[in-house]
Write a protein that binds this DNA or RNA. Structure first.
Lengths: 245, 245
DNA sequence: CAGTGGTCTAGACCACTTA
DNA sequence: AAGTGGTCTAGACCACTGT
């Protein structure tokens, strides 16, 4: 095996993380092939001059990512079929950009409004308090893809219309120092109303994909609630779900 | 704080797991309120007669679940807004049962067929080799909810039609000793064809929710590929996504 | 039986936050 | 400066898997 591993003890990057990165890269590049055994933890630790718990921490992080499998009495193996994307909070803007679709955004509305009961409940705020309401049309290659309505708690973000035109909401939140943690999503379908059909360039009654989402940051605060409409001919949701053990 | 924690050293359940369960129960029951501090790890370890790494392992598992937040220099806090479901590989059968809908299944087809190119690619098998093809109609309260077509590699499961009628595919796989690990899903929408409309009790052209899914076990093998059609008036997908750090 | 991962301990030093 | 979590060590014993 041509697998060369080494760690830099002067680096500020944690040792377990350095090791995890190198193992992941080796799997990615095919140096470690699916099904191959990693060698036992004790020996690996000795070879790297690390303690066993440190090596275990590195391996565990890759097991959590679904790249490795550990079996007692057997060893640690590279998973047979590599997973494409582990799991992501999908951002329509990033998805389109990654697909080379050159997303564009038209900001239809960007104001403060009193929170309705539904919005207040989703964001965990008092009913009637002010919230940002942002309404956008997302396009790719000049064609409408989705109609997005979002509500955000006040004072969290500088919701400049120019910023909203140039990028996605998630990027805006991340660059404002908000660490996104999780989102609760509901995906369904229904027929387009007349107004919706016109906005999206569909016919009345055409099937539309619907999503409602509440996003939480790492302290558990709701930072965004949105109801979105997608043209199913132009967009579908793709993601990887992991089983909780 | 009336929080009583204790561990049973004679139990076969790992100590860190016992502690994690008790903390989770305390959060669930509201004994630990959102935002409250957990007390530092050293003191917690001393109180329980455990070592610090063991306590950390328990806390880390709850951080991963999104129930706790740790901040250096601050402490460990209960997350502000409790997460309903962490994230699950959703099973239509279990979802319906949990909602008190008394699911029923009609097995339309259950045979071995040669794998098409699409199916072979999804399951990682050779084209033309035999695969199970299962076609089912899922009902709740006698109303059709979904039309399910699944392909499974041969020799993995005893696909008895009576079993298929009585339960879901995921339960069948679990009881056959298969440990599910992850699934790649694609969710979209489209108009019902005439045949589909008739099967589901909709009108031709009605919007339908579509899902394609490939499920993998913990060794990375594909164990199931399916294309499903749902009536959006009866079912929508609900789930929690976690951000990868 | 030998070899593997699973759990656990009792320390240590460091980086960061808050006051 | 004091207190927190983040990282790391060098051991130990156990449970499970294969031969």
């Amino acid at each position: 095996m041509s697998l060369e591993l080494r760690v830099d003890r002067n680096s500020p990057v944690p040792l377990y993380f350095q090791l995890a990165q190198q193992l992941e890269a080796a799997i990615e590049r095919g140096v470690l092939t699916p099904g191959s055994l990693l060698g036992n933890e004790i020996e690996l630790a000795a070879r790297l001059g690390l303690s066993r718990p440190t090596v275990r921490q590195a391996i565990q992080s890759l097991v959590d990512k679904g790249l490795l499998v550990r079996r007692r009495g057997v060893g640690t193996q590279v998973v047979h079929s590599r997973v494409k994307r582990p799991l992501e909070l999908s951002s329509l803007y990033d998805d389109l950009e990654a697909a080379g679709q050159r997303p564009a955004t038209t900001v239809l509305v960007n104001t403060l409004v009193p929170a309705s009961a539904e919005v207040a409940a989703a964001l965990g705020l008092g009913e009637g308090g002010d919230v940002h309401r942002v309404e956008r049309l997302r396009l790719a290659h000049g064609e409408p893809i989705a109609y997005l309505v979002n509500f955000l708690p006040p004072g969290l973000l500088d919701l400049d219309t120019a910023h909203l035109r140039a990028t996605g909401l998630y990027r805006l939140m991340r660059s404002a120092g908000i660490t996104l943690h999780s989102a609760r999503q509901s995906i369904g379908a229904r027929a387009a109303t007349c107004a919706e059909a016109e906005r999206l360039g569909e016919k009345e009654g055409a099937p539309l994909l619907t999503m409602e989402r509440t996003t939480f940051d790492d302290t558990g605060r709701a930072v965004e609630f949105g109801t979105h409409l997608y043209r199913p001919s132009r967009y579908s949701f793709e993601f990887q779900l992991l089983v909780r053990s």
